[in-house]
Design a protein around this nucleic acid. Sequence first.
DNA 1: AGGTATTCACATGAAACTATTCTCTGAGTTAGG
DNA 2: TAACTCAGAGAATAGTTTCATGTGAATACCTGT
Length: 401
Amino acid sequence: MVVKLDKIFDSVNKNNIFKNKFVLQANYTPETIPHRDKEIEQIAAILAPSLKGEKTSNLFVYGKTGSGKTLSIQYVKNELLKRVKSNNEGVSLKIEYLNCKLKKVADTEYRILAELIKKLGGKVPATGLPTEEVYNRFVELIDKEKHLLILVLDEVDQAVKKISDNFLYNLTRLNSELSNTQISLVGISNDLRFLDNLDPRVRSSLSEEEIIFPPYNALQLQDILRNRAEQAFYKEAVGEGVIEKCAAFAAREHGDARRALDLLRVAGEIAERQGDKKIKLKHIDSANNKIERDKILDVIESEPKQFQLTLLAIMNLTEKNQKIFTGEVYGAYQELCKKTNTEILTQRRVSSIISEFDMLGLINANNISRGTYGKTREIKSAIPKGIEDQARTILKEALFV
DNA sequence: AGGTATTCACATGAAACTATTCTCTGAGTTAGG
DNA sequence: TAACTCAGAGAATAGTTTCATGTGAATACCTGT
């Protein structure tokens, strides 16, 4: 055993691939953002009036995941703040960034406000207050002194989906209640249709300005990857065609740069673990599989118990039949509940759970009608064959079946 | 044969309920002066 | 009398249940030829 571990530790020590892995991690902010000059300039132009202490237009930013939205905004934000500091003209500018997607941080109106208050140096209990009161405290806090406040709401679509859009309406309307401070909103979304199903009042005020981030194409992705790879890896560690292949993979997925970087990092990790001195093309393939697999298994593992029971029921049934229906799933689910001594939920609820799995992409469900035999959903497992067994094991362990 | 009515087995939505978590408030209690 | 404790009221949220309503097409049921 000892020998084995030594080997592993040695291989880490030798580490002839990574120079600085941090560069490839998701939360790393590079100094340069290639191929986004135009967008950054636009953002800067829109937000520039804030330097003079004027309220800027509200801004709405679109773009698929990994197209550099957040990065660009952060960049402009930092530059603005730097400028304000050096200008020293007594303009008090605050820019707060908030990611609305993070669970437990910001998925209700209350929590978003609470989080903002916390970031601005205030304090508010995690629960117990009426939402109205939190608004008041928020207003009180920011209106105390003369400020210019720019709120950056990342993934607003998520927030609105969960909360309803009058939360945004309240925010836009807040300016009229403020005497000292002015608020501008910057919304970031990766859903292009998001604005369409928004209250017209909110829409018009939120999207005074709009910027669309086009996805990166394969060549641009290569640039980005090369840029980072230089810092992340030792010179000889990246094999021929590796960058190109990563870029190609990610380009296929709507030009997601984050995905491309992940791919490169995981490929590096795999190469390292296998004791190779170089990242080769085959490592990328395994990396691609691994990322895909981990994503699915993570989701499965972190799902609540009732969800896991439902999923196991579905998996057990799909093993026997190609096509299964809601009723059968509910039946199998009930059996499992009895076996595991779990409370049985109503069919209505299980139906919702099935819908959620569909959204997560763990299953495919289609509404079909079977004539006299009723209308139902036809369910198919979307878990790749290769990891079904692993998935099943995880489920069984989690449920003590 | 062709047309229409029925019927099934759920889907989908809305509202109401439950348990839990947390703050705030004010009454009652305690300890010190 | 000030400080402290503690129970109860009120809020918010997640996860559910209850109730109500919707629905697509295979089949049953007519109907007139």
